Amino acid sequence: MPYAKLTITIPESVWISEVSRAYPETRFRVLAATANTATGVARIEILGDDPGAVCEEMRAYDSVTDLTVFETDSATSRVQVETTVPLLLTSLQDSGVPIEMPFEVRDGEVTLEVTVPQRTLTDLGETLDEFGIRYAVERVQQDVESDPLLTERQQWVLDEAIGRGYYDTPRRTTLVALADDLDIAKSTCSEILHRAEGQVLKAYRTDGRDAHPEVAATSD
Rank of each mutant, 00 (worst) to 15 (best):
Pro24Ile: 04
Pro24Thr: 04
Arg27His: 02
Phe28Glu: 01
Arg29Lys: 09
Leu31Lys: 14
Leu31Trp: 10
Leu31Asn: 14
Ala32Leu: 08
Thr34Val: 10
Thr34Pro: 04
Ala35Thr: 14
Ala35Cys: 14
Ala35Trp: 00
Ala35Arg: 01
Asn36Tyr: 07
Thr37Phe: 08
Ala38Ile: 12
Gly40Pro: 01
Val41Gly: 02
Val41Phe: 03
Ala42Leu: 12
Ile44Lys: 14
Leu47Pro: 00
Leu47Ser: 12
Gly48Thr: 02
Gly48Arg: 07
Gly48Asn: 05
Asp50Lys: 09
Gly52Ala: 09
Ala53Phe: 01
Ala53Thr: 12
Val54Asp: 03
Met58Ser: 02
Ala60Lys: 15
Ala60Glu: 15
Tyr61Gln: 03
Asp62Ala: 10
Asp62Ser: 12
Val64Ile: 14
Val64Gln: 00
Phe70Leu: 06
Phe70Thr: 04
Asp73Ser: 05
Ser74Leu: 01
Ser74Met: 01
Ser74Gly: 05
Ala75Arg: 12
Thr76Leu: 07
Ser77Phe: 03
Arg78Ala: 09
Gln80Asn: 11
Val81Cys: 11
Val81Phe: 10
Val81Leu: 08
Val85Lys: 07
Leu87Lys: 07
Thr90Tyr: 11
Ser91Tyr: 06
Leu92Glu: 07
Gln93Ser: 13
Gln93Cys: 06
Gln93Asp: 10
Val97Leu: 09
Met101Ser: 14
Met101Glu: 13
Pro102Lys: 10
Phe103Gly: 00
Phe103Thr: 02
Glu104Asn: 11
Val105Pro: 02
Arg106Val: 13
